[in-house]
Amino acid sequence: MIRGIKFIGIPVSNQDVALKFYTESLGMKVLTDQPFTPTQRWIELTIPGADSGLALFTPPGREDQIGKFQSVSFWCDDVFATADAMKKKGVTFIKEPAAESWGTAAVFKDPDGNQFVLSSKDRKK
């Protein structure tokens, strides 16, 4: 039986730049950082307090996915406050936080241009 998501792969062009962004700007922690292929390391990050994480790795032949919208939505308790804190750490938002009928969300990007949704866990009723 499936019990959850262990990690989501994020395609990146420079693992060192990505690692700095995801740890320093987003507050993730390194679980694994080791050689994997001749050109890449296996970098797995944990999200403090969560059961799932990210892998900063681009499968061979999937380089065309770098800088695209990723189907990943990160949740937080307060989108407005979290976005403000992230901006202070240099994170760029391409859609500012907004309360919608279905919930509150914003869209930010990483150094490669990969785009992610930041939303509240609970939906408005």
Score class of each variant (00 low, 15 high):
92 T>E: 01
43 I>R: 08
92 T>Y: 04
74 F>T: 07
97 P>L: 05
94 I>W: 15
102 W>F: 04
90 G>S: 07
71 S>L: 07
34 Q>M: 06
33 D>V: 01
67 G>A: 04
51 D>M: 13
40 Q>V: 05
29 K>Q: 06
71 S>F: 01
117 V>W: 04
92 T>N: 08
17 V>P: 05
8 I>V: 15
39 T>D: 05
109 K>F: 10
36 F>E: 05
49 G>M: 08
35 P>W: 02
102 W>Y: 11
15 Q>M: 10
108 F>C: 02
100 E>R: 00
11 P>G: 05
13 S>K: 08
84 D>H: 08
79 V>I: 06
91 V>N: 11
71 S>A: 08
101 S>E: 07
106 A>S: 15
26 L>R: 11
119 S>Y: 14
35 P>K: 03
101 S>A: 10
12 V>W: 00
106 A>E: 14
62 R>Q: 12
91 V>E: 10
38 P>S: 07
73 S>W: 00
49 G>Q: 03
15 Q>D: 01
74 F>N: 09
20 K>G: 12
13 S>Y: 01
121 K>Q: 12
21 F>P: 12
77 D>C: 11
13 S>V: 04
94 I>G: 05
80 F>I: 08
18 A>E: 03
53 G>W: 04
74 F>S: 15
29 K>S: 09
42 W>T: 11
45 L>E: 12
98 A>E: 10
94 I>M: 11
35 P>T: 03
19 L>C: 01
13 S>E: 10
7 F>P: 07
102 W>E: 00
13 S>I: 00
70 Q>L: 09
113 G>H: 05
62 R>C: 12
11 P>W: 04
86 M>V: 07
64 D>R: 14
89 K>N: 09
